[in-house]
Protein backbone atom coordinates (compact mmCIF):
# COMPACT_ATOMS: atom_id res chain seq x y z
CA UNK A 1 0.00 0.00 0.00
CA UNK A 2 2.85 2.36 0.84
CA UNK A 3 4.46 1.36 -2.42
CA UNK A 4 1.46 2.50 -4.43
CA UNK A 5 1.38 5.81 -2.61
CA UNK A 6 5.10 6.33 -3.14
CA UNK A 7 4.76 5.55 -6.83
CA UNK A 8 1.88 7.99 -7.25
CA UNK A 9 3.88 10.69 -5.49
CA UNK A 10 6.81 10.01 -7.80
CA UNK A 11 4.54 10.40 -10.81
CA UNK A 12 3.23 13.70 -9.47
CA UNK A 13 6.79 14.88 -8.88
CA UNK A 14 7.58 14.09 -12.48
CA UNK A 15 4.56 16.09 -13.62
CA UNK A 16 5.66 19.03 -11.49
CA UNK A 17 9.14 18.80 -12.99
CA UNK A 18 7.70 18.97 -16.50
CA UNK A 19 5.71 22.04 -15.53
CA UNK A 20 8.79 23.63 -14.00
CA UNK A 21 10.84 23.21 -17.14
CA UNK A 22 8.01 24.20 -19.49
CA UNK A 23 6.40 26.84 -17.28
CA UNK A 24 5.54 29.86 -19.43
CA UNK A 25 5.89 32.39 -16.62
CA UNK A 26 8.29 32.63 -13.76
CA UNK A 27 5.52 32.08 -11.23
CA UNK A 28 4.61 28.78 -12.82
CA UNK A 29 8.14 27.64 -12.15
CA UNK A 30 8.03 28.78 -8.54
CA UNK A 31 4.68 27.05 -8.08
CA UNK A 32 6.09 23.84 -9.51
CA UNK A 33 9.16 24.05 -7.28
CA UNK A 34 6.95 24.52 -4.25
CA UNK A 35 4.76 21.61 -5.27
CA UNK A 36 7.82 19.46 -5.84
CA UNK A 37 8.98 20.32 -2.34
CA UNK A 38 5.73 19.33 -0.65
CA UNK A 39 5.66 16.09 -2.61
CA UNK A 40 9.22 15.41 -1.45
CA UNK A 41 8.04 15.77 2.13
CA UNK A 42 5.29 13.24 1.53
CA UNK A 43 7.65 10.90 -0.25
CA UNK A 44 10.19 11.03 2.55
CA UNK A 45 7.49 10.30 5.13
CA UNK A 46 6.04 7.41 3.14
CA UNK A 47 9.53 6.05 2.47
CA UNK A 48 10.19 6.09 6.19
CA UNK A 49 7.20 3.82 6.73
CA UNK A 50 8.08 1.69 3.73
CA UNK A 51 11.51 0.92 5.13
CA UNK A 52 10.32 0.89 8.73
CA UNK A 53 12.67 3.69 9.73
CA UNK A 54 10.59 6.45 11.30
CA UNK A 55 13.60 8.72 11.88
CA UNK A 56 13.07 9.82 8.28
CA UNK A 57 10.29 12.00 9.64
CA UNK A 58 12.85 14.45 10.99
CA UNK A 59 14.02 15.04 7.45
CA UNK A 60 10.43 15.57 6.39
CA UNK A 61 9.97 18.28 9.02
CA UNK A 62 13.15 19.99 7.87
CA UNK A 63 11.92 19.85 4.31
CA UNK A 64 8.59 21.49 5.18
CA UNK A 65 10.34 24.36 6.93
CA UNK A 66 13.10 24.80 4.38
CA UNK A 67 10.68 24.64 1.49
CA UNK A 68 8.58 27.40 3.02
CA UNK A 69 11.60 29.57 3.68
CA UNK A 70 13.10 29.15 0.24
CA UNK A 71 9.82 29.88 -1.55
CA UNK A 72 9.46 33.08 0.44
CA UNK A 73 13.07 33.93 -0.34
CA UNK A 74 12.55 33.44 -4.05
CA UNK A 75 9.37 35.48 -4.03
CA UNK A 76 11.01 38.30 -2.14
CA UNK A 77 13.93 38.29 -4.53
CA UNK A 78 11.75 38.61 -7.60
CA UNK A 79 9.53 41.19 -6.04
CA UNK A 80 12.71 43.13 -5.47
CA UNK A 81 14.05 42.51 -8.93
CA UNK A 82 10.93 43.99 -10.46
CA UNK A 83 8.54 43.23 -13.22
CA UNK A 84 10.93 43.54 -16.09
CA UNK A 85 13.02 40.58 -15.14
CA UNK A 86 10.00 38.42 -14.53
CA UNK A 87 9.03 38.72 -18.16
CA UNK A 88 12.59 38.17 -19.33
CA UNK A 89 12.76 34.96 -17.40
CA UNK A 90 9.72 33.62 -19.19
Amino acid sequence: MFTITALVILVVMALALVRAFKGPTLYDRILAVNNFGTKTVLLVAVMGFLYGRPEFLDIAIVYVLINFISVIGILRFFEYAGKKNAEEEA
Binding site: L17, A20, V33, F36, G37, T40, L43, V44, M47, R53, E55, F56, D58, I59, V62, Y63, I66, N67, I69, S70, I74
Partner: peptide, 28 residues
Protein backbone atom coordinates in the same frame (compact mmCIF):
# COMPACT_ATOMS: atom_id res chain seq x y z
CA UNK B 1 17.19 24.84 -7.03
CA UNK B 2 15.81 21.84 -8.79
CA UNK B 3 19.02 19.91 -8.93
CA UNK B 4 19.48 20.56 -5.23
CA UNK B 5 16.04 19.30 -4.35
CA UNK B 6 16.27 16.20 -6.44
CA UNK B 7 19.86 15.44 -5.43
CA UNK B 8 18.88 15.51 -1.80
CA UNK B 9 15.94 13.28 -2.50
CA UNK B 10 18.17 10.66 -4.07
CA UNK B 11 20.48 10.69 -1.12
CA UNK B 12 17.51 10.12 1.15
CA UNK B 13 17.32 6.55 0.11
CA UNK B 14 20.38 5.59 2.06
CA UNK B 15 22.09 7.75 4.61
CA UNK B 16 19.85 9.58 7.02
CA UNK B 17 22.41 12.02 8.34
CA UNK B 18 23.76 12.90 4.93
CA UNK B 19 20.26 13.43 3.65
CA UNK B 20 19.56 15.67 6.60
CA UNK B 21 22.54 17.84 5.83
CA UNK B 22 21.68 17.92 2.18
CA UNK B 23 18.10 18.90 2.96
CA UNK B 24 19.05 21.80 5.14
CA UNK B 25 22.20 23.02 3.41
CA UNK B 26 21.54 22.15 -0.21
CA UNK B 27 17.90 23.04 -0.53
CA UNK B 28 17.71 25.83 1.97
Amino acid sequence: IYSLLSASFFIDLDAVDVAFTEASVGAG
